[in-house]
Simulated assay, not measured.
Amino acid sequence: MRPQRFQDFLIDTVKNTPGTVQVRSLAEAGDSKHPFGVAVSTSDGESRWQIVGQLAEGERHEHEEQPVQGAPAAWTDAVPGDSPEGWLAAAIGRAESPEIARIDRWSVREGDTRQGITVHFHSGAKAYVRKL
């Protein structure tokens, strides 16, 4: 899933997630520095997330995207008091998209304190969602 389509998916998914007050693209939130991303407001405040994509091997931007479907990523809901990263990963996982194969949180990796998510697609593409 390319960044623009993933951003649209993320906005649609997050707006239907309990606890969401508002979600909009970074551009709508006044951020012109990052081409793709979302600003998410919950009762805990706002968090902003940049989206960067990595194409599947052999894929080119001039080619039309070829979505690949499979079993949705297995995911456990975020727990009360979890970080915005955990909340966002759980929202993506609960959507049960057949294009998403796996969701990895960065902050739970040993020695990594960054907040972010890598979304692996069945096509071989990836989306890196980094907290700004």
Rank of each mutant, 00 (worst) to 15 (best):
Val108Ala: 11
Val79His: 06
Gln115Val: 06
Pro84Cys: 14
Gly30Cys: 14
Val52Gln: 04
Asp8Lys: 04
Leu132Met: 06
Arg94Ile: 10
Arg60Gln: 09
Val40Cys: 04
Ser123Tyr: 05
Pro18His: 07
Asp112Met: 09
Pro3Met: 15
Pro67Asn: 12
Lys126Thr: 04
Ala91Asn: 08
Gly111Lys: 10
Arg102Glu: 02
Thr20Tyr: 13
Ala29His: 14
Ser83Cys: 12
Ala56Lys: 06
Arg60Trp: 09
Leu55His: 03
Glu28Cys: 04
Ala127Ile: 05
Val52Lys: 05
Glu57Gln: 10
Asp77Val: 06
Phe9Leu: 07
Lys131Gly: 03
Gly19Gln: 05
Gln4Glu: 09
Thr42Lys: 13
Ile51Met: 01
Ser123Gln: 04
Ser41Lys: 15
Pro84Asn: 15
Thr76Ser: 05
Glu99Ala: 06
Gly58Leu: 11
Trp75Phe: 02
Gln66Ala: 15
Phe121Gln: 02
Ala89Phe: 00
Leu55Lys: 06
Pro35Arg: 10
Leu55Gly: 02
Leu26Pro: 09
Ala56Ile: 07
Thr76Asp: 03
Pro72Gln: 15
His34Asp: 03
Ala29Pro: 11
Ser107Met: 07
Ala91Lys: 01
Ile92Trp: 00
Val119Leu: 01
Thr42Gln: 14
Trp49His: 04
Ile11Ser: 05
Ala56Met: 07
Leu10Thr: 02
Leu88Met: 14
Glu64Trp: 12
Pro72Asn: 15
Gln7Asp: 02
Met1His: 09
Pro35Ala: 11
Asp112Pro: 02
Ser83Ile: 14
Val21Trp: 12
Ala95Asp: 05
Arg105Asn: 03
Gln69Ile: 03
Gln69Asn: 10
Leu26Thr: 06
Ala91His: 03
Ile117Trp: 02
Gln66His: 10
Gln66Met: 12
Met1Phe: 10
Arg48Glu: 02
Gly111Asn: 03
Arg24Lys: 14
Glu85Pro: 08
Ile100Thr: 01
Gly70Ser: 13
